[in-house]
């Protein structure tokens, strides 16, 4: 691992008496591809919310490129290059597809305090949102209202917004969940083509995708990190098999 881009130090998150994340530490370096897996209710999305700044951890610290960002608001983390997508898509429904991505581009370029100009057709902005849409194969939908998109297309757009923000650390919360196979293959291709220097943490249930994507796997169960290491080893790990993989691991192990 070269330079650590994202580091969690003893992060715990409790809601009332319920400890959803328990003393979690790991770090992700430049260019790493890491998958976060675990059974439903293991605390994966909570952990992503803590990292992205939507939740403040009860204990512990989140470091971004060596800087403690635990107390920083979401927007400052985005400026520092921490970008996430959502398990259930969250898009700007009254805007067009192009406007959704262009807004992200303009926000990154510091153009959103501009109250008079015609934004989207600025050549430098246009080039970027067209490229982001093109990467995900939805450039032809640019003028559509988001409310007119199919769910799979919305997932692609969610990822396009993420790419347009030019992340250093990208958190993908089940990017291919609930997406028809045609679109999910586009999502997987786009993930494969992500710039090689960014660090990616992906929550995913689809183990085929995990094995294809990740060089390292983190396993969360009951809020605890019970395994981190090589994906090939995860299936042999007794505790993981008990907690999560069940018959899938046995089947894969046997084959």
């Amino acid at each position: 691992m070269s330079q650590s881009l994202l580091e969690l130090r003893n992060v715990s998150m409790s809601f009332g008496g319920m400890r959803v994340n328990d003393d979690i530490s790991f770090s992700i370096g430049k260019g790493e591809r890491v998958a976060l897996i675990g059974p439903n209710g293991a605390g994966k999305t909570t952990l992503v919310n803590v990292i992205s700044g939507d939740l403040t951890p009860s204990q512990g610290a989140v470091h971004l490129a060596g800087v403690d960002v635990t107390a920083l608001p979401i927007s400052d983390r985005v400026d520092a290059g921490l970008v996430r997508t959502f398990q259930i898509t969250r898009l700007f429904k009254s805007l067009t597809v192009a406007q959704n991505v262009a807004l992200a581009v303009m926000q990154r370029k510091g153009l959103t305090s501009n109250i008079f100009s015609s934004p989207i057709d600025r050549p430098d902005v246009r080039r970027e949102w067209e490229r982001a849409l093109g990467t995900l194969g939805i450039a032809h939908l640019a003028d559509r209202q988001v409310s007119q998109l199919a769910y799979g297309q919305q997932r692609l757009l969610d990822l396009a917004i993420g790419l347009a923000l030019e992340p250093k650390v990208l958190l993908l919360d089940e990017p291919a969940a609930g997406v028809p196979s045609e679109e999910s293959s586009k999502i997987i291709e786009a993930i494969d083509r992500l710039p090689s220097d960014i660090a990616v943490l992906m929550i995913e249930h689809d183990m085929d995708l995990v094995f294809r994507f990740a060089r390292r796997v983190l396993v969360l169960a009951n809020g605890k990190l019970i395994f981190q290491g090589d994906p090939r080893e995860v299936t042999h790990h007794q505790e993981v098999r008990r907690a999560y993989l069940g018959s899938y691991a046995d089947a894969r192990h046997a084959s």
């Binding site: 939507d54 979401i74 985005v78 996430r84 969250r90 898009l91 429904k93 992200a104």
Partner: peptide, 10 residues
């Protein structure tokens, strides 16, 4: 439309 999403683009 979605203020959390807006925060998440910075």
């Amino acid at each position: 439309d979605d203020s959390l999403r807006a925060r998440m683009i910075g």
